[in-house]
Simulated assay, not measured.
Amino acid sequence: MNPVSFDFGNAVMHFRKTGGPKGFLLRYGATYVLLYLVLSAVSLWLQWPMYGAMFDPAVMDDPVAMEAAMMGHMGRVMLGYLVLLPLGLAFWMVFEGASQRRYMRAEGFHLRLGADEWRLLVVGLIWFGLFIGLYIGGIVAVLVPMGIAAATGTGEGAIIGGVLAFVLAIAYMIFVLWLCARFSPAAALTVRDRKIQFGDAWRVTRGKAWTIVGSWIVLGLIMSVVFFLFYLIFVVAIVASLMPMMSGMESEDPSLVFRALLAPGVLIPGALLLVGMVFLQACGMHIYSGPAALAARTDPEWADHQAIDDTFV
């Protein structure tokens, strides 16, 4: 792998500078879509009785019948959640592992459930705990000044409290972004060092956090534009196909509406929209990990032993 320095431009485009076999992003996105559809089909099958009741014309307009139908299928719904939770975790683990191995080891695309993935699961659980703490902190940051203002019992105090709460909310969001940037290389470091790393990310991102945040913002804006344009193209096609059928309906019969939604002119663009959006989401997940992975890759205290061995063979 060619050495890449850490700067804003390289952080934004790092997904194209990983080295390794070509075609990774295409395979990553396509496989993500395929397994996503399989997982969605499993979810639909497990919870089909509930969906069937929701779209049953005889039940839709009867709250008592709807509640009875939901309660009658609650056991299968709970079973669905119990099955989907580990499947969803495994889904995230294998794709996160493939993404980080690409960044840190320049590997081609392949999925596996090995030691890297289980270590990444621990890192993910640490992130989950951190996000819960940050969420609670955000609530406190907004409510405390508002509570103090309410205690004054004056209109001026309420205005000051509201303004202060707004300022603190913005400041807190900036702090959260900065804190997440400081720990963002944790997954990359875990794959790089083949051991669970989280706290060491703080050292790796020293002097790099705002560059990472800036690259996230730029990547987020670019992805938002791509998502919007892609979404707009297919929504226009769906609406153009749906409007003639809907205008010809003399009633709002749910079965007729459902039949119109299943027409090829609506179903095909809708399916392509779903597949395309999931593909873009998968690619975005991998691309978004690039800045943090570059920070781990350019860690001055890490020696790339494989590159050293290749140099002195």
Rank of each mutant, 00 (worst) to 15 (best):
N2P: 14
S5I: 04
F6R: 01
D7A: 07
F15Q: 02
F15Y: 12
G20H: 06
G23P: 11
L26H: 14
G29K: 04
L35D: 03
L37M: 11
L37I: 12
V38E: 14
A41K: 02
Q47F: 12
P49M: 06
P49E: 08
G52T: 08
A53T: 02
M54S: 08
M54L: 14
V59R: 01
D61G: 10
D61P: 10
D61C: 00
D62C: 13
D62T: 13
D62P: 09
M66P: 15
M66C: 05
A68Y: 07
G72T: 03
H73Y: 08
M74S: 15
M74Q: 15
G75R: 14
G75E: 14
M78P: 15
G80C: 03
P86H: 10
A90R: 01
E96P: 07
R101L: 02
R102Y: 01
R102W: 01
E107R: 06
E117L: 13
R119Y: 10
L120C: 04
L121H: 01
W127I: 11
W127Q: 05
L130C: 11
G133C: 02
Y135I: 15
G138P: 13
V142W: 12
V142E: 15
M146Q: 10
G147K: 07
A151K: 09
T152V: 07
G153L: 05
A158F: 10
I160A: 10
A165C: 05
F166D: 13
V167F: 08
V167R: 00
A171F: 07
A171S: 03
A171I: 00
Y172K: 07
I174T: 06
V176R: 11
L177H: 12
L179C: 01
L179Q: 00
F183I: 14
F183D: 07
S184T: 11
P185G: 08
A186V: 02
L189K: 04
V191E: 00
I196R: 03
I196Y: 01
Q197H: 01
T205G: 05
R206F: 03
G207T: 06
K208T: 09
W210V: 08
G214Y: 06
W216G: 10
V218R: 03
G220D: 14
I222K: 03
M223A: 15
S224M: 12
F227Y: 15
F228P: 08
L229S: 09
L229W: 04
F230K: 02
F230N: 03
Y231W: 12
L232T: 04
F234D: 00
F234M: 07
S241L: 04
S241T: 12
M249T: 09
E252K: 08
E252R: 09
S255E: 13
L256P: 09
A263Y: 13
P264R: 06
P264E: 09
G265S: 05
G265H: 06
P269F: 10
G270D: 03
A271T: 15
L273N: 06
L274N: 09
G276C: 08
V278R: 08
L280C: 01
Q281T: 11
C283D: 01
C283Y: 04
G290C: 13
G290E: 10
P291L: 02
L294T: 03
L294E: 02
R297T: 00
R297P: 06
E301F: 02
A303I: 13
Q306T: 14
V313P: 09
